[in-house]
Amino acid sequence: MEELAGIFDNLGLDKTCFETFVKLARTKTLKRQEHWITEGNVCRFIGFVVSGTLRSYVQNADGEFNNDFYLENNFVSAYTSFLTQMPTNCNIQALTEAQILYITYEQLATLTSEDIRFVKLGKYISDHFFIRKCKRETSFLKHTAAERFEMVKVLYPEIEQRVSQYHIASYLGIKPQSLSRIKLLTYVKK
């Protein structure tokens, strides 16, 4: 919660804005493996991960493919669905027990229409998701799997202790065996 208060402070939103947000927000605790949203549903929330680890993934005939992770102090949402209020094509699942503080689409719309200062928060959230998406797309176009792995460790500190190698490999777009080789080569170079 302290991190979230810090975000408000950095945006120049005073304590009353933070208190208004927290008063509206609800808390949801997810059990390990429980889904926060599933494909085909409309995402009606924007959340802030208070504790735990979640993953976002898409599914097709070939299997599941991770496209994001959410750790403490990150916003979590199927954001395209949230913005368009159309069904999502992804799933968000807790990898550990997780606690999320969230507000609904309608609540955020009300906040921004009643107090222009909350537009800053909306922009911050939008920028957050946009930048993450751009970094991931660019990494696939410019970097090797080994370089992407190093970037993941920076983007998601302690990811290796919190998420299985299988899920990390899926996020990197490689097989778990390839990730094992990358880790071995990295260890040998050191």
Rank of each mutant, 00 (worst) to 15 (best):
T80L: 10
G12M: 06
L121D: 02
P157L: 10
E137K: 00
E19H: 08
M151K: 14
K123M: 14
V76I: 11
V42N: 11
F149H: 05
P87I: 05
T38F: 10
R32A: 15
C90L: 14
V152R: 01
T88C: 14
K133R: 08
K142A: 07
Y171I: 13
D9L: 09
G12R: 08
F140Y: 09
L121E: 02
S139L: 02
G173H: 01
F140E: 03
L111K: 10
L95N: 04
Y187I: 06
T110I: 01
L54E: 11
I182K: 13
V163G: 09
T20V: 07
E160M: 05
D14T: 06
L54Y: 04
N41K: 15
L141V: 02
N60T: 08
E34H: 08
K153T: 14
V76W: 00
A61L: 10
S51E: 15
F82R: 01
F45K: 07
I174R: 09
K135Y: 02
A5H: 04
D68K: 02
L13A: 07
F18S: 14
E39V: 11
S81V: 04
R132S: 09
R136A: 04
T104W: 00
D68S: 15
L155H: 05
L108E: 13
L108S: 11
I92S: 06
T144V: 14
K123Y: 14
S180A: 14
V42Y: 10
I125N: 06
V119D: 15
S139M: 04
I131R: 00
E158T: 14
L24Y: 00
F18W: 03
L184S: 14
Y79D: 00
F45P: 00
F118D: 05
N60W: 01
F65T: 14
R148I: 01
A78T: 12
Y79C: 00
S126H: 13
K133D: 03
K183W: 03
A61C: 15
Y57H: 12
N74I: 01
Y102F: 13
R181H: 07
S77K: 08
F82H: 05
G6D: 11
L141F: 02
R181N: 15
A146H: 02
T144M: 08
K183T: 11
G40A: 15
S180I: 02
Y57L: 09
H167D: 15
S51W: 03
D14P: 05
F21I: 13
A78W: 03
S77E: 14
S81A: 10
P87N: 13
L185H: 08
E147L: 03
T29P: 07
G63P: 11
I168F: 04
L24P: 02
T16G: 12
T144H: 11
F65W: 12
N60S: 14
I116W: 06
S113P: 05
T186K: 08
N89E: 14
R148M: 04
V49I: 15
V49H: 06
T84G: 05
